[in-house]
């Protein structure tokens, strides 16, 4: 599996546009800046929704209203982040695919998606009974805490990708090499 990922990353790395994107100082920085600054739209809205469920924001506004109205800008933000995230991966595919932080981030993004699906499902099933209350029921609040926790760790991992502490190019403990998917004799990093 790791070999397959590595070969795919090397193939991406060899494409002209990957090199162009990586070597273009302004283009790469614009894409990365857009990825980071869109946090203000996507996570900003998500935080407001989660904080509403926890009773720390808009306690006097129905929870369903906050969730519905802020959902659209939040999804627009996540779409932009997704597209720019793919471009960032495309610019540095080999190193990114063998980054422990990137791998943890991807797993957590799946966890975030599952949590969001369950959160909305549970909310839609029961919201009529607690919509105007300042705090949502325990199950919904648990989902909101999970969402805040997962996304915070996603941002931490995203930030840590920039550092080379655990890169395959350095000597790493066997456990880290296993997590990162480092290959014996690999020539590209």
């Amino acid at each position: 599996m790791n070999e397959l990922i590595y070969n795919f990353a090397v193939w991406l790395d060899d494409t002209t546009y990957s090199a162009m994107l990586h070597e273009s100082y302004y283009m790469y920085n614009w894409v990365e800046s857009t990825h980071v600054l869109t946090l203000m739209v996507s996570l900003g809205m998500l935080f407001l929704i989660d904080l509403r469920m926890l009773g720390y924001a808009f306690p006097d506004v129905p929870a369903s209203k906050i969730a519905e109205r802020l959902n659209v800008p939040m999804l627009i933000g996540f779409t932009v982040m997704f597209v720019t995230g793919i471009l960032l991966f495309y610019a540095v595919p080999v190193r990114s695919s063998q980054s422990v932080w990137f791998r943890i981030k991807m797993v957590l993004l799946v966890a975030c998606a599952v949590n969001a699906f369950l959160f909305h499902k549970r909310m839609n099933e029961s919201v009529s009974t607690w919509d105007v209350e300042a705090r949502a029921p325990d199950r919904i609040r648990f989902g909101a805490w999970l969402s805040l926790g997962f996304w915070s760790i996603v941002v931490i991992c995203g930030r840590f990708i920039a550092y080379d502490w655990l890169d395959c190019v350095r000597d790493q403990p066997a456990f880290i090499e296993f997590l990162a998917g480092c290959l014996d004799g690999q020539t590209r990093f």
Partner: peptide, 30 residues
């Protein structure tokens, strides 16, 4: 890097509050 992350998360919250409030004032949100 960890403190930088907290900086980014608070920036996200700040951005969310600004966009929600100004979105309401401009008449396209809430």
């Amino acid at each position: 890097a960890f403190v930088q992350t907290i900086h980014l998360l608070s920036l996200a919250l700040l951005g969310g509050t600004v966009l929600a409030a100004e979105g309401r004032v401009l008449g396209f949100l809430l």
